[in-house]
Nucleic acid binder design. Structure first.
Lengths: 157, 157
DNA sequence: CTAAATTCATTTGTACACAAACGATCGGTC
DNA sequence: GACCGATCGTTTGTGTACAAATGAATTTAG
């Protein structure tokens, strides 16, 4: 026992497991993913400029544009928002006149979402900026690193 | 002009730029980062079990443990939380008796944060689970892909 | 065809995340 | 030693994010 005293001295007191002492928050995937997402959100807000869209508002507009008309739940699944979150995002887009809600005549549980003319113009202007936002986000990576990173990131979902 | 009619038919109407029409939300870094972070949060909540900690509460506890005592602003910088967010996280940890706040005698603007005995026990138990949470998050990647992914992710911050 | 299970939208409550503005306090400068 | 800019903690307001519960409508099972 006494032979290992020197080694034990480098280890935390009270018999704390080494793995616990060696845990470094900054190296954990979760922390890194959060920081990276955080940075992207900042770049997005800066790059979207006067259009005043949040990432989720933009995502909703893009998917409605892709499909023409969508139900609220369907939009939530496409953008990975739960129903409660979708509710708020849709409300704000309707309030700004970017989308319109109508009742679905075939299924009275559902509401149909469509872009307004202003909404269509806004998405198209936003997408031009979103392309630059993506570039800015990936700027720290080299040309060859980007597809590698994106492929691995996609596997993680 | 009429010669190109066939080609133009494949292109969106009203002269919409091709880049705008070809924009795919699902392939954008921002969307992928959000989804990956989302998935990690779900794994975290599941894996932390009965300890009932959010990722940010856990992060705060870990950094306070690392430093022994920290000011609130300092903690915010270490965990990448802004002051307003830090406020709420700290409040909830104090309310649960996991940390304690005392006034700094040398600088009356600052408050000193420390772990309570219960707080220390909780972090140590949580770290054991956090290691497994990290593993579960990275599970979709092979052993050799993981360091590659983490290195690229780190470059992005 | 009716009862049960499912789906859709909504509401409530908690927890980040950040902008913006605030008073209190500190550090440095003149 | 009074002023001035910076820092610290706090509050308010907006926007996700999600659990949990609800009522209305639809689908499925028996």
């Amino acid at each position: 026992m006494s032979k290992r005293a020197a080694k034990l001295a480098a280890v935390p007191p009270k018999g704390e497991a080494p793995a616990v002492a060696a845990y470094r928050l900054e190296e954990q995937v979760g922390h890194l993913l959060r920081r990276a997402h955080q940075r992207h959100a900042a770049i997005f807000q800066d790059g979207i400029g006067d259009l005043q869209l949040t990432p989720m508002q933009f995502a909703a507009l893009v998917k409605i544009r892709d499909l023409g008309k969508v139900s609220q739940n369907q939009l939530g699944r496409l953008t990975a928002m739960d129903p409660a979150t979708t509710q708020g995002v849709i409300q704000r887009l309707v309030a700004r006149g970017l989308i319109e809600r109508t009742a679905d005549p075939d299924d009275r549980r559902m509401t149909v979402l469509r872009l307004t003319a202003q909404g269509r113009a806004t998405v198209e202007a936003a997408i031009v900026r979103a392309v630059k936002i993506t570039e800015a986000t990936l700027a720290p990576l080299t040309e060859s690193e980007r597809p590698v990173f994106l492929a691995l990131l996609r596997k993680l979902i």
